[in-house]
Amino acid sequence: MLHRRLWLFAALAILPTLAIFAWVRLFPIVETLRLSLHKWDILSRNKPFIGLANFQELMGDRLFREALLNTSIIAFGVLIVTIPLALVLAALIHHRTGSRFGPFNESAIFVPHIVSLVPAAMAWKWIFDAQLGPLNALLGVFGIPAQAWLFDPVWSIVCIIILCSWQALGYAVLIYIVGFRSLPESVFEAAKLDGATGRQAFWHVAVPMLKPITLYVSVVTLISAFNVYAQALVLASDSQGAPGRQVRVLVLDMIENSFRNYRVGYAASEAVVLLVIVLSLTLIQFGLLREKGRR
């Protein structure tokens, strides 16, 4: 009898969450998959099933291909900047544990990760600004000619990578610091006894042992960078309102297709592409971890 009462409680208590979960997570996810196979222009009632036609069209869509390419470049750019930098910074911070400056360093590196995106992006936009920006002024001191960073097709992407890396770094450093703290002290003592220098211990002991963490941070960084949107939107127009160069990214293309071109099914198929990318990255992570576990 007692047993039954317990289970009744469990069922009743978990039910509201399950209902919300089904309503705001499961349903829209399934709906995305379903819509991607349909043609729907918001206004009309019927949504004819068109199979994979949306995906076929995506293949030839110049704007989508541009968005996919830009987003991938940004995501991998952020990865290449963030991970090595975070590893070195975390190693140095860990080495100086207990230092007077420790709390300041950790906070300063972490703050960009939590502050609101738009104000932070605005700060960087001012820095990169062609006329008013301190970056050009600084480079001018060294005799480097001013650049319209946010209007150049290559530099504007580099600017987004810098902004996103600046934001992502704090998280990666934090996770690495946790990783360094979890490494057994004895391994480093053994390395020292064998005559390894600090740098050798870092490369040959710490880095290999931190591989699962590197893998995890890399995948998280990549996935969040694939969802880049606000950064591209804010950096695109300059502070005087003149239209800058819009760096087309996936989420932006998706929102435009859905709410400007009223092609919801088509936008949903883009969302599915994003989902496939994210799932593959996650599966690669699990695969690599398992492979490592077997060895």
């Binding site: 979960f21 309503w23 705001v24 997570r25 499961l26 349903f27 829209p28 996810i29 709906e31 995305t32 819509l35 996935i223 694939f226 969802n227 949107y229 989420v251 998706m254 859905s258 919801v264 936008a267 949903a268 969302a271 599915v272 994003l274 989902l275 994210v278 799932l279 996650t282």
Partner: peptide, 17 residues
């Protein structure tokens, strides 16, 4: 499993809800 799916993927159907 749903936690892996980014919000941006399903926000359009959610908008219509």
């Amino acid at each position: 499993a749903t936690a892996i799916v980014p919000f941006e993927v399903y926000m359009i159907p959610l908008y219509f809800q």
